[in-house]
Design a protein around this nucleic acid. Structure first.
Lengths: 212, 212
DNA sequence: ACCTGAACACCGTTCAAGT
DNA sequence: ACCTGAACACCGTTCAAGT
């Protein structure tokens, strides 16, 4: 018997081997040895299936226990989110890109709002901060998964080639920065982004609270 | 006679009426009254066509004249970028999402690096800042175009409905912030994001420079 | 240099009929 | 309640043949 769960599982299988672009009702049906049309009994078309995949990914995000320290707690959530998104790199763009309205997506939001509230932010500013920080996180992760492992810091030949291309532009600032632009260390970039975002949050925190 | 230019133009037509999802070689061919296979003489398949569209959008970004003031100049670029991305809202996700390697994409990068360099940042930090700020910008705009006009601040009924859904979650911090979470004013969110990012940049700027 | 006919191997989805 | 046959209206792309 078919079920929503097994269908989502089969979709992960397709995504892991053929990418999100490889997902089709027919491909998923093939994995399950079932007619693609049967899927419609459990899932709301292809869009609904992809939403279900994104939700499955988010729902297993385990939120770290809060310590009471603003930056420690926000940082922990950011890293947990990244770990989850990268657990199926090919599926990451789904979580990052879909407008999720399900309950699944609300737990992390609750966690972040609670931390900000405890740090003394008022509700309105908390929502703004939540949105900017999340956008920065998503933008950073999106670049990371788009760049792919090809863009790693290892591949010396690739770096040399990209440096050459950048220098060929003859734009002075680009040329001067070429060797840095050609390199991309995902871990370091993420760390830099998170620390910058945390700085910005702390910088706006009301005084006399527990953030330091 | 067909040309790359007319093909890209026809694709914009398709995108503006049917969204990115409506783009197909056949649909573009139909607009031009031409066999879809003919497109392959001017464009590298569908992927290449979408790249060309994104590049066309970026290439008409006109960069504001620098004034020499760090925040003024970065802010001007951010707003110019947004205006361009939103000029064809349905096409925005292409510019925001594609890994562009063309010359077109380098001009804005040159501009930003030059501003950061003039503010006294060293090359390595400039590249980091460029990447974080761009990621934040992209994340913010992606949300904006995904949310769509539906999520405007006008629609009182929609806001009420979303507030109710959020409150139904019974998560305390989400409930407390429900009325703010249900609202989304794209202009204000963008402004907040930009000012936060600029604060973060200024905060890291070497002293004794021209940023103030 | 450019266009297209023939051809191939794909898609998502509805709906009525079966169990 | 679930599965599927028949059917429809789509896709992207290659390659050889035409002008």
């Amino acid at each position: 018997m078919l079920s929503r769960e097994t269908i989502v599982g089969a979709t992960f299988q397709v995504i892991d081997t053929a990418g999100v672009g490889g997902v089709s009702m027919r491909a998923v049906g093939r994995v399950l040895g079932v007619d693609p049309k049967s899927l419609y009994n459990h899932v709301d078309g292809k869009e609904g299936l992809l939403d279900a995949v994104a939700e499955a990914l988010l729902s297993t995000l385990d939120l770290p226990e809060p310590t009471g320290d603003l930056t420690t707690d926000l940082r922990a959530i950011a890293y947990a989110f990244r770990a989850r998104a990268l657990s199926h790199p090919e599926a990451a763009s789904l979580v990052l890109t879909r407008q999720l309205s399900s309950f699944e997506g609300l737990a992390p939001i609750e966690a972040v709002l609670r931390i900000l509230r405890d740090a003394g932010f008022d509700v309105e500013e908390s929502v703004h901060l939540l949105r900017v920080v999340l956008a920065a996180l998503i933008g950073t992760l999106l670049r990371e998964v788009n760049a792919g492992p090809t863009y790693g810091s290892e591949d010396a030949a690739g770096i040399a080639e990209r440096t050459a291309v950048l220098e060929a532009s003859e734009l002075p600032a680009v040329t001067a920065a070429a060797s840095h632009l050609a390199r991309f260390d995902a871990d370091k970039e993420f760390e830099y982004a998170v620390e910058l975002a945390l700085d910005a949050v702390v910088h706006r925190a009301p005084k006399g609270q527990n953030q330091r």
